[in-house]
Amino acid sequence: ETQAGIKEEIRRQEFLLNSLHRDLQGGIKDLSKEERLWEVQRILTALKRKLR
């Protein structure tokens, strides 16, 4: 995994995270989306740690 590859994956995950946040802010309670949001946040945290 290169730095560029990790950064690209971070961009993808952040896009997905923002999309999930928008969907959930629409007021629709969706447990699967909430679980996915937490999963994406965990992935992002792990990726950012790899960059250090």
Results as ranks from 00 to 15, higher is better:
1 E>H: 10
5 G>R: 15
46 A>L: 07
24 L>T: 04
28 I>W: 04
11 R>G: 03
52 R>G: 08
17 L>N: 02
16 L>Y: 05
33 K>R: 08
9 E>N: 03
13 Q>H: 13
17 L>D: 02
30 D>M: 02
9 E>V: 03
49 R>C: 13
18 N>I: 13
14 E>D: 02
29 K>G: 08
43 I>S: 05
43 I>R: 08
42 R>P: 00
1 E>A: 10
52 R>V: 11
14 E>A: 03
38 W>E: 11
39 E>R: 03
28 I>N: 10
24 L>C: 05
29 K>V: 10
12 R>A: 05
34 E>C: 15
17 L>I: 06
24 L>N: 03
36 R>Y: 10
50 K>S: 08
3 Q>W: 08
35 E>W: 06
40 V>D: 00
27 G>I: 06
1 E>Q: 12
1 E>S: 10
7 K>A: 10
44 L>P: 00
15 F>R: 14
42 R>I: 06
47 L>D: 00
5 G>M: 14
28 I>Q: 08
18 N>D: 14
47 L>C: 01
31 L>D: 10
37 L>M: 11
42 R>M: 08
20 L>T: 01
2 T>E: 11
4 A>F: 07
44 L>N: 00
14 E>C: 15
17 L>R: 06
39 E>W: 04
51 L>V: 02
23 D>I: 07
39 E>A: 04
16 L>A: 02
46 A>K: 06
35 E>C: 14
48 K>E: 04
20 L>D: 01
31 L>T: 14
9 E>A: 11
50 K>I: 15
33 K>A: 08
20 L>G: 00
44 L>Y: 00
44 L>S: 00
32 S>F: 10
6 I>C: 12
36 R>H: 07
36 R>P: 01
30 D>V: 02
17 L>M: 05
34 E>S: 08
34 E>V: 14
27 G>Y: 04
1 E>C: 15
27 G>S: 07
25 Q>K: 13
36 R>M: 13
26 G>F: 09
36 R>E: 11
23 D>M: 11
37 L>G: 01
6 I>L: 12
40 V>S: 01
2 T>I: 09
18 N>R: 12
34 E>L: 15
32 S>T: 10
32 S>W: 10
18 N>G: 05
50 K>N: 04
15 F>L: 14
7 K>N: 06
3 Q>H: 09
10 I>E: 01
26 G>K: 11
7 K>V: 11
52 R>T: 10
38 W>T: 09
11 R>E: 07
28 I>V: 15
27 G>R: 04
13 Q>T: 11
44 L>K: 00
33 K>S: 05
18 N>P: 00
23 D>L: 12
41 Q>W: 14
39 E>H: 04
5 G>F: 14
30 D>Q: 02
4 A>M: 06
19 S>F: 06
9 E>K: 05
29 K>P: 09
43 I>C: 06
17 L>H: 03
29 K>Q: 10
5 G>N: 10
34 E>D: 04
1 E>W: 09
32 S>V: 13
35 E>I: 09
51 L>Q: 02
13 Q>F: 15
35 E>N: 09
45 T>G: 08
49 R>L: 10
25 Q>L: 09
10 I>T: 01
13 Q>S: 02
33 K>D: 05
16 L>W: 04
10 I>A: 01
22 R>K: 12
51 L>T: 01
9 E>C: 14
23 D>S: 08
43 I>L: 12
23 D>K: 05
49 R>Y: 05
42 R>E: 09
15 F>T: 14
39 E>V: 05
23 D>T: 05
26 G>Q: 10
25 Q>R: 08
9 E>S: 04
26 G>N: 13
26 G>W: 06
46 A>Y: 07
35 E>D: 05
51 L>G: 00
47 L>Y: 00
26 G>A: 11
29 K>N: 10
22 R>F: 08
1 E>I: 10
45 T>V: 13
43 I>Y: 10
16 L>R: 02
16 L>P: 02
5 G>L: 14
3 Q>I: 15
41 Q>P: 00
20 L>C: 13
51 L>K: 00
35 E>S: 07
11 R>N: 03
22 R>N: 10
29 K>S: 09
20 L>K: 00
24 L>A: 04
2 T>N: 07
28 I>G: 08
20 L>F: 02
32 S>I: 12
50 K>L: 13
47 L>V: 00
23 D>C: 13
4 A>V: 09
18 N>M: 13
8 E>P: 01
27 G>F: 15
4 A>R: 11
11 R>W: 05
12 R>Q: 06
46 A>N: 08
38 W>I: 14
38 W>M: 12
17 L>A: 05
43 I>P: 00
7 K>S: 06
3 Q>C: 15
6 I>W: 06
30 D>F: 02
52 R>E: 12
37 L>D: 01
50 K>M: 11
27 G>L: 07
50 K>P: 00
52 R>F: 08
47 L>I: 01
6 I>H: 01
16 L>F: 04
52 R>I: 13
1 E>R: 08
24 L>Q: 03
9 E>Y: 05
45 T>I: 13
7 K>Q: 12
13 Q>A: 13
29 K>W: 15
52 R>S: 10
41 Q>V: 13
12 R>K: 12
2 T>G: 06
16 L>V: 05
12 R>E: 04
38 W>L: 14
1 E>M: 11
14 E>Q: 08
18 N>S: 09
47 L>M: 12
15 F>G: 11
11 R>D: 03
40 V>T: 05
35 E>G: 04
9 E>T: 03
10 I>K: 01
9 E>L: 12
12 R>T: 04
45 T>P: 00
33 K>P: 02
16 L>H: 02
3 Q>K: 10
